[in-house]
Design a protein around this nucleic acid. Structure first.
Lengths: 353, 353
DNA sequence: TTGAAAGCGCTAACAT
DNA sequence: ATGTTAGCGCTTTCAA
């Protein structure tokens, strides 16, 4: 492959002049510039990134680090939605994306290697699971430019962007209430699985219910299941199948599902019980991914602004890379409610009789 | 950040000795090695990748180039499943992954830049849309190590890995037939959308039907729709809603859907018509993604071996990178049938009466 | 306006 | 077993 030197020889100038032309510096006679440009074109010369990186210290590459497993259903959509924004911002700023998945079965793997090797200028960590304490310490000690998405590491130097799940849960509950629903179930995670985001959504639901109803919500209307279909199936039967329901538990007219995934599964399960959505029961999800699947009915949900978060993460990261002394940034994004067919109006046409 | 020189000074040796220790070369006295290793540890030294790349010509990075849009539902799962295998093979071979999405609205964008800059040693192109002729020519002219997944560019130098959609369509149709189904619909793409993979699946269906039934399949049982829910809804009504069906068209007992996406949408649509799966109709999908969504019933499908394809692509690419004179490789992967609840036995319990 | 020299971090080839 | 020299492709600094 052609180098600056080759171009210089062909154009009859020194290689430094070639460098000047490439970097659009002044002080190059028009005729010389022309000669060099012709030589570049003829040789198909393209500047090598390594030479540049070696003396600028910059690679124009940012690393995406994430424990999200590939090939695992809905989480892929989460990651891809972020990447959509990350990609856009990177393209606008001339950055490339180095993907560093964190695989759990390789415990001793050095995830910061791409940075230590100076293959990337900084890191975006996509959470869902929190960064380990030792990694946080190391990021801090090495002064690695880093920003965390979807988690809030409590560390003085590490910036983060997260969504306001509590508030979204709150606002959505108000929407459900506004449509006339008074017996509302919340479909969350079984206690063994801890997920701070989902816990926040539930907290928002509780706060809204308390405000609107003036009482605490009925604890029997909190259903908790795992991620698997079987577990979700059981939870729905416990609520809507009279044979399975605890005596005295009221039948809800709406279910606030903690994820879209769940919402879709719940709609299917209700169908197998002969219940229609929103005719018999209204369903609301959370995430915004249902929009990407051809679900029928469309699911009312909360759409996390993931592409925007990805874009913002890149911008903040680049600032940190350029200026190492910038203070930490903390960004809380609101999660807007998105209406859908699955949320009906109680007592009006299209809703329950 | 510490360099070899710093380590050398600290250890009281020359920098070349440091290089030797790092690369585990022989000819280093045990005591010297120890000194150097201590210095490395104390300084937190890590070899810079740019220096190495500069004189080895290798970056140990491979580029993933794809026109697949992020944030677009099921295609994400396709890409992620490939990446799962790509990641595994890269990790085993000490390679990093540079993600280069191809965005259509930036027509003049130079997708081969990461290679021209020598930021990546080779490229994996993930198809679905074919590589443009001009890019194929350029890959050829520049002798870029490259392998294409999910397409078969007819070019002498470019390797590819693809699935055998025709054969999978054929085998699956035999499975449906074996369960007693004789009136089988095929749910494909509307004519305006061309997709070679789906066309191949349909061809396999036709060949099997011809062999098994001894006649051509009924053209009225080929339903074609777009990707959107509305379009799929209409297509299902045309087949199963007596009010919409052409007079004389037989009602199928099974529908072979050209993707899992479609299969899931079809199950939902049938439910809204009061038809159950597999009680009233059997459904078969294609792709294998339904496994990742908690669909009820589980969908019988064809599971593309995507992680394996990704892994193989990396291995072949690395061979091409190491040895530029290797001949092109062409790999056709078989797509195994995966049974599921959605495919019932006609005339037996659990199937249609 | 152009060029020469030095150096970024590393390794291969050649001394010692 | 260890060190010296040169060079990978590029930019920065200084000189002409």
């Amino acid at each position: 492959m052609a180098t600056q030197k080759d171009v210089a020889k062909k154009a009859g100038v020194s290689f430094i002049t070639v460098s000047r032309v490439i970097n659009n510096e002044g002080n190059v006679k028009e005729a010389t510039r022309k000669k060099v440009e012709d030589a570049i074109r003829e040789l198909g010369y393209f500047p090598s990134f390594a030479g540049k990186a070696l003396n600028s210290g910059r690679n124009n590459t940012i690393g995406i680090m994430t424990p999200i497993r590939f090939n695992e259903g809905i989480e892929n959509t989460y990651l891809m939605s972020l990447l959509k924004g990350i990609e856009r911002a990177c393209r606008e700023n001339g950055q490339d994306i180095l993907l560093s998945p964190m695989v759990e079965d390789s415990g001793s793997f050095d995830y910061l290697r791409p940075y230590r090797q100076r293959k990337v200028d900084g890191l975006i960590y996509v959470g869902l699971q929190s960064l380990s304490g030792s990694m946080i310490d190391e990021i801090n000690d090495l002064l690695i430019p880093c920003i965390v998405i979807a988690d809030r590491p409590g560390h003085k130097r590490i910036s983060w962007i997260d969504t306001d799940n509590e508030r979204a849960g709150y606002e959505t509950t108000k929407q459900i209430w506004k449509r006339g629903h008074r017996v509302i179930a919340f479909h969350g995670l079984e206690p063994a699985i801890h997920n701070a985001n989902i816990a926040d959504r539930e907290a928002g639901f509780r706060r809204a219910f308390r405000e609107l109803a003036g009482t605490e919500p009925d604890e029997r209307l909190f259903i908790r299941s795992g991620y698997d279909g079987e577990s979700i199936r059981k939870s729905i039967h416990a609520l809507f199948n009279p044979a399975c329901r605890y005596r005295g538990t009221p039948e809800p007219t709406a279910v606030f599902c903690s994820t879209d995934n769940r919402a879709i599964a719940v709609v299917q399960e209700l169908a197998s019980l002969g219940l229609t959505v929103p005719g018999d029961v209204s369903i609301v999800g959370f995430d915004g991914f249902a929009r990407f699947y051809h679900s029928s009915p469309t699911i009312a949900t909360n759409a996390q602004p993931l592409p925007e978060m990805g874009e913002l993460a890149v911008r903040i990261l680049l600032e940190h890379i350029t200026n190492r002394n910038l203070p930490r940034r903390e960004v809380v994004m609101t999660v807007p409610f998105v209406d859908g067919e699955s949320l009906g109006n109680l007592g009006t046409p299209g809703g329950r009789a």
